[in-house]
Nucleic acid binder design. Structure first.
Length: 837
RNA sequence: GCCCGAGUGGCGGAAUGGCAGACGCGACGGUCUCAAAAACCGUUGUCCUCUGGGCGUGUGGGUUCGACUCCCACCUCGGGCACCA
């Protein structure tokens, strides 16, 4: 009699043994082929939740599978440990952010160990530790040297609650990504990384990532927001309406509509506005528009159907294509930080301009019209502006024919049209404009007015100005003697703040802004390849052995932020000669969310959060791991239900008993039908489980194992104990244990040792192999269809010829086709279709 | 508005263009038991005139010997972007 399955005794036992043997420690001397499996590292925000269980189980099953298949698998974990929540907790509990952070790391680490995850704990990276963040500073200095890190004054997003600026990527619908306070605009001097230098490559290289989900690539492409068009220079007129030497540049994607430009727009924040209207009769109205724009929250301003407000500045500009003088207006629908903050308004071709023109009674001359419209015919040869208004309900922005457009009249107009190119060429020849590409992507604002982050290694000297900290003086250590609960900042640490200028030696002070935590997470995956290096962030040969990451796994919420920044960082490192590849993550899996049984997101406020610890307490971690993978494919949202976990625990218990029964078999070779089928299914299951895991179909792999268990039960039920084929039973038991090992490693290791009489962990055992021939049955059943409807079944030998199969099929449905003419028979692997009439 | 996904039993979900509903949950019936639980064995899309047959994968068309799967149009839900010139 064998022991009953008791997860609560075997799980801690095996975890202890794995730790003692450093089972998951990567052997640096090994020369097996390398794989890098990485899950997005956690933020130490407290206890782990079901989303973590799902994320880390997916990675763990895959990593264990690869290891059993003969790879050296780099499978590390760490913590993204700087950030604002630690400061908030410190203020609340009147402690230090480090205390809260390290306590949470301890808690999460214990949970991860309890989950049986196969991490190389020797490689743990914690970003708030000096031995890691010093290299973040090192990267910053390299970028500063190359002009990729710079400081400038600009309108920025300011979160009043977090009391810091935010990157564009961290503003969601006008609110802070962390606290969802409404973001304000402020003009501030800040540090930026020049991600825009890589805009085109970041876009182009998405094509090098066939292993990424399409939607993630789409989101990044949208965010980068490439558009082709032209810069066009308009000449500013003075108060009297006479041309000056001054030009104002606009960006347009439709230079072919230039002839329809009847007014000119400036963003309310545009620097020129002040000069144009100060002291004029138009000032009051313009100020009113600026006030309305400033008062509107970022949320309101991004509403597409928002009422547009505008005011005339009293000034004019000259349209370079036809010399016409058009009025300059200010309106809140023009964005200050896209293009040049100035827009040529073409009301016939742009819906916003159209609405504005209607509201303020401005003319709407048609210049690009549908080719088959009456207007196209009427204006076919009209080169000057004759028709100055249309009876349309909305602007026409499609492809059409150019009219009233000087020498371009009659040419095709529209996006990428011949007319568009002709206008660009014309402008370029005269120095009035040029074709350009514009991106929506802005430079990455990385400075944060917060304490708990990586200090920016810069010094301000009254004489020498901005001076970088010399590399030999790194790291700039984040001081611990800051009482943020009492309102202290880095300025309050004299030891930190006051320093001497590395150039002239005079008294100077340090930069007190810290870096966005996303800088820390932009390269941690490189550090894992060489985590203890004290002279470089990582050695190239070590990175080369494992990078790029073969499989990256994490939440879709990082589709833009973290993944875009990491791609950028990798390209910078590549251009610095540190790496030889272009993209950090070859394959990406974005797991779905874990929701409650009713399909609602889990949240503390709803009180529907399921605690992983409680689930493990009840069912054991092997059941929890297998269950969360069985419930849905990994990229889909999943509805958690304890019942599923209970079912999985029941299955493990059943399979446990079965493995013991199989190892008790003492009978001779059995060539009965059930034994043959069991053997066949064992081979077929080994084949399917491997193929499924490689495609991340963890759920169907488990289903296949369950089917094998069901068939095994049939065999065991039908045979007397002393008549069970010993050889076959042993093979099936071995297959079951090894196939389930990635999912239920404690369960598997216990059986591997106790029932199967081996020693050590299944982790080091080779994945079972299968015999292709043995996966095939001797006989094949086929449905016989008449015109696509099932009307009978036949069974033929697996090697039966087509004639034999057709004959059997026709005989099976002889009654039904009597009197009909068989026109055609199609034999497919599982059906025969008879076409008769 | 634009761009992605997804719509299959009571539920979670399976199906390289080839017998729709694998596997699991739930439900129902049975064995064991004084009884219950556990365990094990069955049944379980739906309707009908039930040894058989009709209808069934959001809706309507199409391609095909054959469509959940491919094509066209539409509906619903989820997600992302959005006054980006």
């Amino acid at each position: 009699m064998h022991e009953a399955y008791d997860p609560h005794s075997i799980e801690p036992k095996w975890q202890k043994r794995w730790a003692e043997h450093e089972l998951f420690k990567l052997d640096e001397a090994s020369t097996r082929p390398a794989k890098y499996v990485l899950e997005m590292f956690p933020y130490p925000s407290g206890d782990i939740h079901m989303g973590h269980v799902r994320n880390y189980t997916i990675g763990d099953v895959y990593a264990r599978y690869l290891h059993m298949n003969g790879y050296d698998v780099l499978h590390p974990i760490g913590w993204d440990a700087f950030g604002l929540p630690a400061e908030n907790a410190a203020i609340k509990h009147h402690s230090h952010p480090a205390t809260w952070t390290f306590e949470n790391i301890e808690t999460q680490m214990a949970s991860f160990k309890r989950m049986g995850l196969s991490y190389d704990w020797d490689r743990t990276v914690i970003t708030c530790k000096e031995d890691y963040y010093r290299w973040g500073q090192w990267f910053f200095l390299k970028m500063y040297e190359k002009g990729l890190a710079y400081r400038k004054s600009n309108p920025v997003n300011w979160c009043p609650d977090c009391k810091t600026v935010l990157a564009n990527e961290q503003v969601e619908q006008g609110t802070c990504w962390r606290c969802h306070s409404t973001v304000e605009r402020r003009e501030l001097d800040q540090w930026y990384l020049k991600i825009t230098d890589y805009a085109q490559e970041l876009l182009d290289d998405l094509d090098k990532l066939p292993g990424w989900p399409e939607r993630v690539k789409q989101m990044q492409a949208n965010w980068i927001g490439r558009s082709e068009g032209a810069e066009v220079e308009f000449t500013l007129c003075d108060e009297a309406g006479e041309p000056t030497d001054e030009k104002i540049t606009v960006f347009t994607t439709r230079p072919d509509t230039l002839f329809g430009c009847t007014f000119f727009m400036l963003a309310p924040e545009h620097k020129l506005v002040e000069r144009l209207v100060a002291g004029t009769e138009y000032e009051a109205e313009v100020r009113e528009v600026q006030k309305v724009a400033a008062a509107a929250t970022a949320v309101e301003r991004t509403m597409g159907d928002r009422e547009k407000h505008g005011a005339f500045t009293g000034r004019y500009v000259i349209n370079p294509v036809n010399g016409s003088k058009v009025p300059v207006w200010v309106s809140d629908y023009v964005l200050t930080d896209y293009g040049t903050g100035a827009v040529m308004a073409v009301p016939c071709g742009d819906q916003r301009d159209f609405e504005f023109a209607r509201k303020y009674g401005l003319p709407i001359p048609p210049v690009v019209v549908p080719a088959d419209s009456p207007l196209a015919a009427e204006l076919a040869d009209v080169r000057e502006l004759e028709v100055t208004d249309v009876d349309w309900d909305e602007a026409f922005n499609g492809d059409g024919i150019m009219v009233q457009s000087g020498q371009f009249t009659g040419m095709p107009g529209g996006h990428d049209s011949e007319g568009m190119q002709a206008v660009i060429d014309w402008l370029a020849e005269r120095g009035l404009g040029r074709g350009i590409v514009n991106f929506r992507l802005r430079d990455w604002l990385i400075s944060r007015q917060r304490y708990w982050g990586n200090p920016i290694p810069m010094i301000y000297c009254d004489d020498c100005g901005l001076v970088p900290v010399p590399e030999k003086d790194l790291p700039v250590i984040l001081p611990m003697d800051i009482d943020i609960a009492a309102g202290q900042t880095l300025k309050d640490s004299k030891e930190f703040y006051e320093c001497t200028c590395p150039v002239c030696g005079k008294a100077a002070h340090r930069e007190t802004d810290t870096m966005d935590t996303f800088t820390c997470s932009s390269w941690y995956y490189l550090r894992y390849t060489d985590p203890h290096n004290t002279s470089l962030p990582f050695a190239k040969d070590k990175a080369d052995r494992f990078m790029p990451v073969d499989q990256y796994i994490g939440g879709i919420e990082h589709a833009i932020l973290h993944l875009l920044y990491s791609r950028f960082w990798t390209k910078v490192a590549r251009d610095a000669g540190m790496l030889d590849f272009d993209e950090p993550f070859t394959n990406l899996l974005c797991q779905g969310m874990v929701k409650d049984a009713r399909g609602e997101t889990m949240s503390k406020s709803k009180g529907n959060v399921v605690s992983p610890e409680a689930v493990i307490d009840e069912f054991g971690v092997d059941a929890a791991r297998a269950c969360i993978l069985f419930m849905a494919p990994p990229d889909k949202d999943l509805q958690w239900d304890d019942k599923g976990c209970a079912a999985m625990a029941r299955f493990l218990k059943r399979a446990w008993g079965q493995v013991w029964s199989l190892t008790d078999a003492k009978g001779p070779a059995d060539d009965g039908q059930l034994a043959k089928e069991l053997n066949r299914q064992m081979h077929a299951t080994i084949k399917k489980v491997g193929a499924d895991i490689e495609r991340f179909n963890f759920n169907t792999a488990l289903a296949a194992i369950m089917e094998l268990v069901n068939t095994t039960a049939d065999y065991l039920n039908a045979t007397a104990e002393d008549a069970r084929d010993e050889q076959l039973c042993h093979e099936v038991a071995t297959a079951l244990v090894l196939l389930l090992a990635p999912y239920a490693p404690h369960w598997a290791d216990e059986l591997w040792n106790e029932a199967l009489g081996n020693e050590g962990s299944t982790y080091g055992v080779a994945w079972p192999s299968f015999d292709e021939e043995a996966t095939k049955a001797d006989e094949v059943e086929r449905a016989v269809m008449i015109g696509g409807k099932v009307r009978g079944h036949i069974t033929t030998a697996a090697d039966a010829g087509e004639d034999e199969i057709v004959a059997a099929a026709l005989e099976a449905v002889a009654d039904r086709i009597a009197g009909l003419t068989v026109r055609k028979t199609i034999v497919a692997p599982t059906v025969v279709n008879v076409v008769a009439n």
